[in-house]
Structure formats: structure tokens, C-alpha cells
Amino acid sequence: MANNPMQQFNVYKIGPEINIGGVDLSFTNASLFMVISAISIALFLYLGTKEKKIVPDKLQLLSEMLYGFVAKMISDTAGSKAKPYFPFIFSLFMFVLLCNMIGMLPYSFTVTSHIIVTLILALFIFIAVTVIGFIKHGFKYLSIFVPSGVPAILLPLITVIEIISYLSRPVSLSVRLFANMMAGHTMLKVFGGFVISLGILGGWLPLSFSVALTGLEILVAFLQAYVFAILTCIYLNDALNLHH
């Protein structure tokens, strides 16, 4: 059991069972780590904004750099129209980043390694972007499926492809994050298992792999949070600025 690399993804109840209308909404370890991530973000932002200095200290500088980073990401990909959605993108990026990063701590739980979590985030983004698109452009928003400058003979095919690609956005968005996190953590666990099973003589090789993989996984944790946020920006850009 202990050697099972998938065991780390187990979800179990913490505390009493909460059952509302026949649906089990119990507080689990996944919920715990969501709360930990959110509290870490809040704490970090609280400490980063506590003192308003003209010359910032480290935490304040970090929070301001993150602000600038996300603000630049949004304005670069979605333009100035996306400004009202800045808090959402910022929260999303920070939440995914913190969930990924806290998941890197030993014995912790990676919230984003569960497809249901990423799928709900992705579905929310997908639905919100679609609604925003229809609110901003009405039925003209459907022209996103009909790219301009395509030969008439190819148009039906292209339109079908565009529709499929549009509808597969939530799937690709959620599976990308989930699969990356799950694969990385599984791999770490497998190599960790090798260290134990090969013992003091042969365990050094998988241990060094583990160290390297940990570095890689930290990079992936940041990168996937960035990709998640920037893809959201790109989708938002499609809805706000109908370029097709």
C-alpha cells in the first residue's frame, strides 16, 4: 500500500461527514489544502500590503512584482478591455500556483492533481468566456467559428474544426494541468520508491533523479499555473476582441 505511487492522490474525510440533500460535502484533505493555499495567498498579500513603503521590502516587492506580472500578461494577451477581469485572473493564477507549489511539499496533497478540480475551474472559465462573448457581441460572437480568408470550399470543414476546438477548450485546459501535476508527482513517488527498494548501494541513482525531478516539478508547477492563466487570457481575448 505504502509503495503505491497513486496513494498520494487519495482523498479522505477530515472531521465529521457533511451531507446536504444526499450529497456528501465532507471536509477532506483536498479541501484542507485548498484552504491552506487560499490562506497562504491571503497571508502573503496581507504581509505584502501591510506597510505602504515608497521603497518596498521583500514581501511588498514580491506582491507588487506579481501584480505587475499578471497585469502585463493580461494587457499583452487580451488588451485593455480585459482590465475588469484582472482580479479573477490574478486569483486564478495565484490559486493554481500555490496549489501546485504546496503540493511539492512532502506529505502534502496536490489539489490541482485532481481532474474534478481543474475541470471545474476550466468549465467555469469556458462558460464565463462564452457568456462574456455573447454579451459583448450578441450572435456575432458565433463568427468566431468562421475564420475569415478561408476558401469557401473549405469553410464547412474549418467551421466544424473550429467548433470542436472551441468545445474542447475546457477539456484541454483542465487535463493539461491535471495530467502534468499527476504525472510529476507519480514520477517523484516512483523514483522515491526506487530509492528505498534499491537500498544504500543502488539507491543513489534514483535519489539524484528525484532531486533533479523535484527541481523540474517546481518549474512545471509555476509553468502550468502560468499556462493556465495565460490560456484563460487568450480565451478572454477571443471573447472581448472578435478578431476573426
Binding site: V11, D24, L25, S26, F27, T28, A30, S31, I120
Partner: peptide, 8 residues
């Protein structure tokens, strides 16, 4: 725990 995760 899908419902629980979604809810939380």
C-alpha cells in the same frame, strides 16, 4: 468526493 471537492 467529487461533489465535496467541487463545493469546497
Amino acid at each position: 468526493y467529487w461533489a465535496s471537492q467541487a463545493f469546497w
